[in-house]
Amino acid sequence: MTSGKTYDVVGVGNAIVDVLARVPDSFLENAGVEKGIMQLIDADRAVELYGMMGPAREISGGSAANTIAGLGMLGDKAAYVGKVKDDQLGAIFAHDIRALGVTYETPLAPKSVEGDETGRCMVLVTPDGERSMNTYLGVSNHLSPDDIDEEMMAQASWIYLEGYRHDGPDSLAAFSKAVKAAKNAGGKVALTLSDPFCVDRHRDEFLRMCREELDLLFANEHEIVALFQTATLEDALDRAKEELPMAAVTVGPAGVYVIQNGRMVHAPAAPMSRVDATGAGDLFAAGFLHGLVKGRNMLTCGTMGCVAAGEAISHIGARPEEDLKDLFARFGLNG
């Protein structure tokens, strides 16, 4: 299924390098880290945590960037917009995403400018596979409208916006520019809510986008409840059926509920062992969007998302280690 556009999906979000380490639960308590959430930290706290962590792996990350990386691995025409500095971690990020066939042309913050560096996320993985993220946004926080190429957005069938990126000072203006360019050219807009605390910070803006701009919302069960401020997941799903043209609401080991035009289907989770939950939602979105651009039905899109998410949780780190095309073939999801 082709659209005539240069890109199937263009993602906009935080350009981050993940620094991952396995730690016992006692480490979180001793380090003052709240388990299972993403917490924003400053440069000094990033240095402090890095010194406490012990052996770690550096892997390119960032929520929307992980999604776009997955799409690149699946052979989709993908591009990414996110800010890094001309430094060591910035070079790692740019190389890794381009190596997957993704177009990445966001101007680097100059090395000569003092101040923020390339963003990094300290991902602390406990024995139960839960990840606690401490994120120093660095220069990714300064993504501005000047970084948004309107022609790139116009050449996208879908643009995919990261909820976390709303925390930046110029983010709303940057997103507005991207959405306008995409919509004016007949493109569609997807948003991932990212985190319940992110929803709490930006609920009014997210609800406005749901009413006025979005064609697709990605959320997990906690995020959708936070968005609609309901007592139960069932109530939140009812609201989603009434108010959203399309939504994919993941429910962990229970799979995903996919909503389209007031109807809902359920796809089960893929049978993979959970080692590290980092990137599960990101890769779910990659699989789901891949299905959409290939013209698959909602149940198949949801199944593709669950299989890609299953790959992500089966190892340390958010980027796929197995060829997603081969994995889809094993599950009878060719194409």
Rank of each mutant, 00 (worst) to 15 (best):
R131W: 01
N141P: 00
E150Q: 15
E151Q: 13
Q155E: 15
G163Y: 10
M152H: 01
L193N: 02
M153P: 08
K177R: 15
H166T: 10
E151W: 05
I159N: 12
S176P: 01
V189Q: 03
C121Y: 07
V179H: 02
A154P: 06
V123W: 05
Y136H: 06
N184V: 09
S112Y: 05
D195H: 13
T192R: 08
A178D: 06
H166R: 09
V179R: 12
T135N: 10
S140Q: 04
W158A: 05
S132R: 02
S144T: 07
A109I: 11
G119M: 08
M152I: 00
A178G: 05
A156D: 12
K111N: 07
R120K: 13
S144Y: 04
D146V: 13
I148E: 00
G168S: 00
K188N: 02
D170P: 00
R131H: 04
V125T: 11
S194H: 06
R120M: 11
D128A: 05
E114G: 12
A173R: 15
A178C: 05
L124M: 15
T126K: 00
A109P: 01
P145E: 04
L161P: 12
D149A: 01
S112E: 12
A174S: 05
K180P: 01
S194E: 07
T118C: 11
I148R: 02
I159F: 05
